[in-house]
Design a binder for these strands. Structure first.
Lengths: 376, 376
DNA sequence: ATGAAAGCGCTAACAA
DNA sequence: TTGTTAGCGCTTTCAT
C-alpha cells in the first residue's frame, strides 16, 4: 500500500519543518543560471582564462599571482561556482569518469568490488560509474557503448560475458580496460586463484562429509555456474582434480553447471534431491546467487536432513557464513583484486598479463572483519 | 599472495588465446581518433547538421528524407560512430546521467535500491551514477557537488545524513531531487512506513519471546541506528508504543541507538550481554549492518544461549533470514520505493510530499522471490 | 529538404 | 603576470 501526504500540511510538525525553511523554499521560484567562469571573470575583474587557471591546477605553471588566485577563489566561492565537467571533459578529452561493469548489484561479492572500486576512484579524484549487465552480453555491449560515449577514462569489467567483443569495442575507442574476476584475452586481467580456492574447498568438504560410502548420495556435487566461463571452468577442474586424487573421480552428473540464477539453482537442487532421495553427502555451491536458490529448496527440508550433508560455497557472505548448518566459504579478496587493477592502470600496463590474487577459506560461523566494517 | 603471468607466454593455451587474435592486438598500435559527425558528414556527403539530425531524433521534424537518413546511418555504423555525450550534454544542458546516493554498496537493502534504480533508469535511456556516502555528511556534500558538476538530470538521495544542505545545494543548481528512505524537508520524499514495520516486528517479538518475566534479561531491546534520523526515530517510537500498550514501557537503556557500524554494534551487544549476564529475551536489530556486528558477537556464544532470545531485524537479507536461530525480518519494498520516486520525477512533482510505501514482514526461514531472482 | 553558423563552458596556445 | 583566441563535438536557429 502506498500513501502520500503533503508535508506542508499534515506532517509539518512530525518533520519539524521550520516555517522559515518552507517559505524560503516556496519563494524560490527559479534558480538563476549556474555561474560560469565568465561570470566569475566579470565579477573579479580578471579574464576567463585567468579564472580557469586560478580555479584549476594550472595556476602555478601559468604563474598567476597568489593574490589574484585568492581573489578569484573568493568570488567563485561566493557565487557557489562549480566547474561544468561536460565542458571541461569535452575540451580535455577526458571526463574524470571511470566505469565498472558488474553482473549485478545485489550480491556481496560484487558489492565488495563496487565498494573498493569507488574508494580507489575517489582517492584519485575520479567519479565511478558502476553498471550491472545482469550477465547479458547484449546489455554488456550497450553499457560499454554508453560508457564510451561518456568518455570514461578507463573501464573495469567484472564477470565479463563476452570479453572479446568488449575488448574490440574498447580498442576502437582507445579505451583502457581491465578484466576482473573473469579474464579476457584482449586486455590485462586480475582474477582470483579459482583453482586453488576450489581445491581447498573441495578438500575441506571431503574431510568433513558425514558419510564416506560409495552410493550416489554419498558423493560430492558441484552446483551452479556457467561451464563455459573461465572461473567456473577452473573450479570444476579443481573439483575434479581433488576427487580424482582421492580416488573417487567425479561422474559427469556430479557437476551441475546450471548457471547463476537462484531460480534455476532451486530447480536443479530439487531435482537432484529427488533423484538421490535426499541431499548429497557434500555440496560445493558455485556462487552466492546459486546458494540463495539452493537455500530456497533447503528451507523446505527438516533440520535433520541437513546433517547428512556438508556445504561449501565459493564466495563469502557474512550472513551465509552463519546459517543453521555449517557452511565453508571461500572469500575472494575483492579489495585486493581492485587494488591490483588500479595498479595496472596507474602503471599503465598494456601487456596481456593475468594477475592472480589468492582467495581465503573462511571456516563456518566466522566473523570476517571487512575493510568497511566501521561503516554502516 | 599475488602472482602475475604473461598470458602471451605461459598461459596462452589455458585461455585458448588464438594467435590471430593476439597478433591483431599487438599490431594495433594506436586507435584513430573517434569519428565525429564531421567525419560522417564528409563520408556521406551531407552537412554536419543533417548528420546530427539523422542520427538523433529530430530528423522527422526537420523532414530529412528517409533515403538520406538511411545513407547517413549506414556510414555511421560502418565507422562505428557513437555520439560524444559530453558535447551533446554541453549543448543541450542536460547530461543523460542520473544520480543516486546510498550510504554504502555492501548491504542488501541498498543494493536492492541500486538494482531497481538502474533498471528504471535504463528503461528511460538514462545512465545511472550511484555513489556511496558512507554516511559521512562531508562525503555526501562532495558527491552532490560532483554530480552537479556532471549535470545529472536528477538525483535520488537514500539515507541522507544532511538533507537540508543537500536540498540547498540542489536548489542552487536547479537540480531536481527526491529523498528516499530518509526524508528531507526541501524536496519530495519516499519512505517506508517505519512505524508500522517496526510495530509489527515488535509485536511479533513480544509474542515469540521465550520468557515473559520482569527481570532485565526478560526485556526487549532495540539496538542500532541513529536516534537523530527519521527512520530510527519512527522505529523507536513504534517500539515504545507497542511495549507501552503491552503494559511494559521500555526503560531508556532498552534502546541502544549506537549507529549503523558493525563494529560498534558488536561492542554494544557484548556490553549488553555482560550487563545482563546473557542475551536479552528479545532483540530488535535496526539494520543489516548492525545485525552483522551483532552476529559477530553471537558467533562466540553456544547454540543454547540463543534459544533464550528472539531476534528481529529491520531490513531483509535472504541469508540472514535463514540463520541458525529464527530471525523475523522486515522487508522494505525497495523496488516500490524507487518506482514511486521515478513516478514523482516523471510527473514532475515539485510539492513537498511524503509518500509512504509499506514494508512487509517476512517470517523466519522464508524464501523471498526478489524481482531479479532469475538473474545471477 | 538541407546547409551555414553560432554557441554551450571550458582549456591551452599564443600574445602581450 | 595576464588577456585574446580558437576550438573540443554537438544541437539549433535561421537561411536557402
Amino acid at each position: 500500500m502506498i500513501c502520500t501526504i503533503d508535508i506542508a500540511h499534515q506532517a509539518a510538525k512530525r518533520l519539524e519543518s521550520s516555517r522559515s525553511f518552507l517559505s524560503k523554499t516556496v519563494a524560490m521560484t527559479r534558480a538563476p543560471r549556474k555561474a560560469t567562469i565568465y561570470d566569475i571573470a566579470r565579477l573579479s575583474g580578471a579574464s576567463p582564462s585567468t579564472v580557469s587557471a586560478a580555479l584549476g591546477e594550472s595556476w602555478r605553471t601559468r604563474r598567476i599571482s597568489e593574490a589574484t588566485v585568492e581573489a578569484i577563489r573568493k568570488v567563485a566561492a561566493e557565487q557557489g561556482y562549480s566547474a561544468n565537467m561536460q565542458a571541461r571533459g569535452l575540451r580535455k578529452a577526458r571526463s574524470g569518469l571511470v566505469g565498472m561493469i558488474i553482473p549485478l548489484h545485489d550480491n556481496r561479492f560484487f558489492t565488495a568490488l563496487s565498494q573498493s572500486f569507488e574508494a580507489f576512484a575517489r582517492e584519485r579524484g575520479l567519479v565511478p560509474v558502476i553498471a550491472s549487465s545482469l550477465r547479458e552480453p547484449e546489455e554488456e555491449r550497450r553499457i560499454v557503448e554508453t560508457l564510451i560515449s561518456y568518455a570514461v577514462d578507463f573501464l573495469f569489467i567484472a564477470g565479463a560475458t563476452d570479453p572479446d567483443t568488449v575488448s574490440r569495442m574498447c580498442k576502437a575507442a582507445d579505451l583502457r580496460h581491465i578484466f576482473v574476476d573473469l579474464p579476457g584475452r584482449g586486455a590485462p586481467s586480475v582474477v582470483s586463484d579459482n583453482h586453488k580456492g576450489a581445491a581447498e574447498l573441495t578438500r575441506r568438504l571431503l574431510v568433513d562429509r558425514p558419510v564416506t560410502g560409495q552410493t550416489p548420495r554419498d558423493r560430492l556435487y558441484l552446483i551452479g555456474g556457467d561451464a563455459s566461463d573461465y572461473a567456473t571452468g577452473r573450479r570444476i577442474e579443481a573439483f575434479r582434480d581433488v576427487l580424482t586424487e582421492a580416488g573417487i573421480p567425479p561422474l559427469p552428473e556430479q557437476i551441475i553447471a546450471c548457471g547463476y540464477a537462484p531460480r534455476s539453482a532451486m530447480r536443479e537442487i530439487a531435482a537432484l534431491c529427488d533423484r538421490l532421495g535426499g541431499l548429497p553427502g557434500g555440496l560445493l555451491v558455485n556462487s552466492l546467487t546459486v546458494f540463495e536458490g539452493v537455500l530456497g529448496h533447503l528451507s523446505g527440508l527438516p533440520a535433520e536432513a541437513l546433517r547428512a550433508s556438508v556445504i561449501g560455497c565459493y564466495d563469502y557472505d557474512p550472513f551465509a557464513a552463519w546459517l543453521q548448518f555449517p557452511v565453508h566459504m571461500v572469500r575472494q579478496d575483492a579489495h585486493g583484486l581492485i587494488r591490483e587493477a588500479y595498479r595496472m592502470i596507474d602503471d599503465n600496463v598494456r601487456s596481456l598479463v593475468l594477475t592472480m590474487v589468492e582467495p581465503e577459506q573462511i571456516a563456518p560461523r566466522t566473523f570476517y572483519d571487512s575493510p568497511f566494517a566501521d561503516r554502516g
